[in-house]
Amino acid sequence: MSFIKLQNVTKHYLNDADCVAALQDVTNSIDEGCFLGIMGPSGSGKSTLLSVLGGLTHPTSGQVIIDNIDIYQLTAEKLADFRREYLGFIFQSHNLIPYLSARENVLLPLAVANISAAEKLHLAEAILERVGLADRRLHLPHQLSGGEQERVAIARALVNQPPLLMADEPTGSLDSETSQQIMTLLSDLNRDGQTIVMVTHNSDNQKWFDQTIMLKDGQLIEKSVRADRYSKAM
């Protein structure tokens, strides 16, 4: 049973009088526990697809079904609840809140959760430990390196234990060594059962993905599944 289903997803943007097709009739399905890579050249519609998958951009037509929920049939507030409960976002430029410490940034998704302060703190500390930032938890973002900021962003995306992690070019602004560390971290998470959808333009990252889809001019032109994907968990 597919965890994510994209059915004929089309997204048009109105640019002045012109209608730009960012996505055209994209159909795909992703299993639970899969590490999906979305690749393609600049302007191919990768980020738009991630945005549509993440419940942030309504498609012009088509359906996005995650865990049997047609997410764009939800009201705006229910869709916000869905994002909070199902999705974790890692943004291209980390997008940490500059005046909050690493731990407070990680706590952000829990600020509106109905759990005790002690439990929130425990979850945040645990995930910071997991990404190797326990000793940097009280630092502000500008006091952290790019790789550390990225790991804070990953911790924030994971703190509410979402079934699906969405990452938009998480290694885009990092050097190769730090990129390797981040990809290893994501791969470890995936090995533990975390479903991940990641946008990247770097073909070197393809080796980490179970499934890769290639976009060009908003169309899905290629789909590949790694041969050893089903032996990964062993």
């Binding site: 993440g54 705006a76 507030e77 916000a80 909070r84 409960e85 974790g88 976002f89 509106v112």
Partner: peptide, 16 residues
């Protein structure tokens, strides 16, 4: 604006 976008993306409701 960007900060508010982050809040909304991580699941804050409009009321939040």
């Amino acid at each position: 604006t960007r900060e508010i976008g982050i809040y909304r993306a991580i699941g804050y409701r409009r009321s939040h």
